[in-house]
Computed example of a mutant assay.
Amino acid sequence: MSVVGKTAGTTPSGAREYLTFRLDQEEYGIDILKVQEIRGYEAPTRIANAPDFIKGVVNLRGTIVPIVDMRLKFNCSHVEYNSFTVVIILNLRHRVVGIVVDSVSDVMELAPDSIRAAPDIDSVIDNGCILGLGSVGERMLILLDIEKLMSSVDMGLVSMGD
């Protein structure tokens, strides 16, 4: 499922669109403009000495793409590869990276007033990588700054530069 050509980003009301996905019991959102495409999971080629959460690389139309399993990165208790497991291909500052998630939910539009600051708690996610908590009805989304998260030193990915 490709999202290229999708009208995304900021709407006239100042709302932003987020692609939502699940990891274990939590639901996350990332800026739709960072998403290049969504693909079914296929086992990547393993890279020696890479951290466990970097599953390896895949060749995507001539581009070598590192694949990060977000479930392992975020210490999810249960990591299972099934028909719902997908790879979200991200285009971050001229670098293409894939992230493995349990499933993709949908694209949600969030107005600025439906986003709250994240509480300052100790978690596996650096607080600087959390944009806030979005709420839509009963749903609570953890909004990630996926670019900052993917370029953090502990990811083991080469600096993305500008």
Rank of each mutant, 00 (worst) to 15 (best):
M1P: 10
V3G: 09
G5I: 07
G5D: 11
G5Y: 12
T7C: 12
T10M: 11
P12R: 10
S13Q: 07
L19G: 05
L19V: 14
F21H: 06
D24I: 02
E26Y: 11
E27W: 05
Y28P: 06
D31E: 09
K34T: 13
V35F: 11
Q36R: 12
E37D: 14
I38W: 08
R39S: 08
R39Q: 14
R39C: 09
Y41W: 14
A43L: 10
P44V: 11
P44S: 11
R46F: 14
R46I: 13
I47G: 09
I47E: 05
N49I: 08
D52C: 03
F53Y: 13
I54D: 00
I54K: 01
V57R: 00
V58E: 04
V58G: 02
L60N: 03
L60D: 03
T63E: 13
I64V: 15
P66F: 04
V68D: 06
V68C: 09
D69H: 11
L72T: 09
K73E: 13
K73D: 01
C76R: 06
S77V: 07
V79T: 14
V79A: 15
E80I: 15
Y81K: 02
S83F: 06
F84R: 15
I88A: 04
I89P: 03
L90G: 08
L90F: 07
H94F: 12
V97T: 06
D102E: 11
S103C: 09
S103I: 04
D106V: 08
D106C: 14
V107H: 10
V107I: 15
E109K: 09
L110N: 00
A111N: 09
P112S: 06
P112V: 10
P112C: 03
D113C: 02
S114W: 02
S114P: 00
R116I: 04
A117Y: 00
A117W: 00
D122R: 07
V124S: 13
I125W: 07
N127L: 14
G128D: 14
L131K: 14
L131T: 07
L131N: 11
G132D: 01
S135W: 05
G137K: 12
L143F: 06
L149M: 15
L149T: 04
M150C: 12
M150N: 01
S151C: 10
D154P: 07
L157F: 15
D162H: 12
D162P: 00
